[in-house]
């Protein structure tokens, strides 16, 4: 085990539940490195939803709450409102964040409450065994779309931006260095920061959507499907078609909720 993991993981909670080759562990590793570089361990309050991804913060040896399916964000709002100086980070899945928890997600973005929300997009419900998620591509077969998914997926980043998020980025589990930087930016960003991480789920999505790709093949496949702004600028349109944009997608400034609440406490505007 490497030094960062030794320093930050809750050893008595190991091993992590993730399947071999699951991207969740890589993303968690990037998060630990971001925390280490920021030196903010004591200020952290971590919140997990339910799903494979919801387990990520449970392994970090700081104050952590593992909540109900879809409800990580409102719990995080309660934590943040009671002590705005804490750095609250939510780990959530695509189903957790924009399926069952979609209403909380858009409203937290609208409020611009200072949270960092890390959403693992594996395009599937991993924990429950490979059913369709609101991110599952159209036509994909899963345990609940045996004839191909008759629905279209959400673009979570567009949803976040439209709802009012003030930091929006998308990376993949194959971009750990970029993730470390993005996590640092998001944690320091004074507002609702959203990071979607496209992640290989070799066991469920790999089997049902990708027809049996193993972890390295699956990650290579994800990398092939994405494009940065710089790459897009030089790419012919036919090559660009169907690729997902990654990188920092949106950044803006707007008054943050708990700062506004603190102004009420001080008697301003009352």
């Amino acid at each position: 085990m490497n030094e960062i993991a030794e320093k930050y993981l809750r050893q008595e909670a190991l091993p992590m539940i993730f399947c071999p080759g699951c991207g969740d562990g890589t993303v968690l590793g990037a998060f630990l490195r971001a925390v280490d570089e920021l030196k903010i361990g004591d200020q952290l309050a971590l919140v997990g939803g339910i799903g494979c991804s919801g387990w990520m913060p449970v392994y970090v040896n700081v104050d952590t709450i593992h909540t109900l399916h879809g409800r990580a964000i409102p719990v995080a709002v309660g934590l943040k409102a009671t002590r705005p100086d804490r750095k609250v980070v939510v780990f959530t899945g695509d189903g957790d964040a924009i399926g069952i928890g979609g209403n909380h997600f858009i409203h937290a973005a609208r409020r611009n409450v200072d949270l960092t929300v890390i959403m693992i997009n594996n395009a599937i419900y991993g924990m429950t065994g490979g059913q369709a998620a609101p991110t599952t591509p159209s036509g994909a077969t899963t345990q609940t779309t045996p004839y191909g998914n008759p629905e279209d997926p959400f673009d979570a980043c567009k949803l976040a931006e439209a709802a009012g998020a003030t930091y929006v980025a998308r990376w993949t589990a194959g971009h750990p260095r970029q993730l470390i930087k993005a996590f640092k930016e998001a944690i320091q960003h004074p507002g609702f920061a959203f990071i979607e991480v496209m992640t290989q789920c070799p066991v469920q999505a790999g089997r049902y959507i990708k027809g049996g790709l193993d972890a390295p093949e699956f990650l290579a496949d994800i990398r092939k499907s994405v494009v940065t702004e710089a790459q897009a600028a030089t790419m012919p349109p036919e090559e660009l078609a169907g690729r997902t944009r990654i990188g920092l997608l949106h950044r803006s400034e707007r008054p943050e909720l708990t700062q506004r609440l603190a102004a009420l406490n001080r008697g301003e505007k009352r």
Binding site: M1, G21, T26, R33, G174, P176
Partner: peptide, 14 residues
């Protein structure tokens, strides 16, 4: 250190 960074189980130390 790419291997250390990619390893999901933090099993690698360079």
């Amino acid at each position: 250190r790419l291997c250390e960074l990619i390893c999901p189980d933090q099993a690698i130390r360079v």
